[in-house]
Amino acid sequence: MGTYIETIAEVKTTGGWKVNEAEVFAHPIADWDTVTEDRRPFIENPFYWQSYGMMGFFAGIRNHSETKVLAAPRGLPEDSDENSIQALAPYGHRHDDYGWGLSGSVVQDAPKTVAQRVLECREGLYGHSWLSAAELIGFDYDQAFIDQSEVPPAVTTYREFLGPLYFQHVDALKKLGDPSEVRILFCFNG
Score class of each variant (00 low, 15 high):
187 C>M: 08
25 F>Y: 02
181 E>K: 12
50 Q>R: 14
73 P>R: 01
23 E>C: 09
152 P>A: 14
10 E>A: 00
55 M>A: 07
41 P>C: 09
113 T>V: 05
84 S>E: 00
100 W>F: 15
92 G>C: 07
101 G>T: 08
52 Y>M: 08
53 G>E: 06
6 E>N: 13
117 R>P: 07
125 L>V: 03
186 F>Y: 11
155 V>R: 15
102 L>N: 15
114 V>C: 03
59 A>R: 02
125 L>A: 05
45 N>H: 08
174 K>P: 01
18 K>P: 05
174 K>G: 02
89 A>E: 00
38 D>R: 02
84 S>Y: 04
32 W>Q: 10
22 A>H: 09
147 D>F: 12
10 E>P: 01
10 E>S: 02
20 N>L: 04
125 L>H: 10
85 I>D: 02
76 L>I: 09
29 I>Q: 09
111 P>S: 10
119 L>S: 12
136 L>G: 06
114 V>M: 05
183 R>H: 05
32 W>F: 14
136 L>F: 01
97 D>T: 04
98 Y>Q: 15
190 G>Y: 10
190 G>C: 08
77 P>T: 03
41 P>L: 10
28 P>D: 01
188 F>H: 06
137 I>E: 03
67 T>Y: 06
91 Y>L: 11
105 S>R: 12
179 P>S: 10
59 A>E: 07
142 D>E: 15
146 I>E: 15
30 A>L: 12
87 A>V: 02
94 R>P: 11
125 L>D: 10
185 L>S: 04
112 K>W: 12
99 G>F: 13
66 E>L: 11
147 D>Y: 14
154 A>S: 15
152 P>E: 15
153 P>G: 13
60 G>S: 07
170 V>K: 01
167 F>H: 04
7 T>G: 01
44 E>V: 06
133 A>W: 00
3 T>G: 08
177 G>P: 12
85 I>V: 15
82 E>V: 00
105 S>H: 14
5 I>P: 02
4 Y>S: 12
21 E>I: 07
36 T>F: 02
11 V>M: 05
12 K>P: 04
12 K>G: 06
184 I>Q: 00
165 L>M: 07
67 T>W: 08
140 D>Q: 11
152 P>F: 13
78 E>G: 00
7 T>V: 01
48 Y>N: 06
60 G>C: 06
119 L>P: 03
184 I>F: 02
158 Y>I: 03
158 Y>V: 06
28 P>W: 05
149 S>Y: 08
66 E>A: 14
91 Y>S: 05
95 H>L: 14
84 S>D: 01
87 A>L: 09
156 T>S: 15
